[in-house]
Amino acid sequence: MSEDNQGILWEVFLQPKPGRPFKHVGSLHAYDKKMAMTAARDLYTRRGEGKGIWLVRAEDIVSSELEDGEAFYDPSNDKIYRHPTFYNLPDGVKHI
């Protein structure tokens, strides 16, 4: 008999209210999409935490590398003109 199989690992994202972004809330094991969806409902929305659920296979998630974190984000560090506070405005100007 092969090793006991507990299914695929899925990551669960919930949308707390319509129009809001989906947020990661945890993970679960299930063998197929439908079962994963039912389990996600039972596990993560017992108290109205969300009305929208996204499920992603954990193995399909692409993640940034931690080791080269600094260098990876470097291109944006010297572009302070991307922030509104960079700009000089005359005193008293409104609605801008």
Partner: peptide, 15 residues
């Protein structure tokens, strides 16, 4: 619960 897990695997394979 083993037969349930086995059935679920078989069903997922079929899908």
């Amino acid at each position: 619960g083993k037969w349930v897990r086995e059935a679920a695997i078989a069903y997922a394979d079929k899908l």
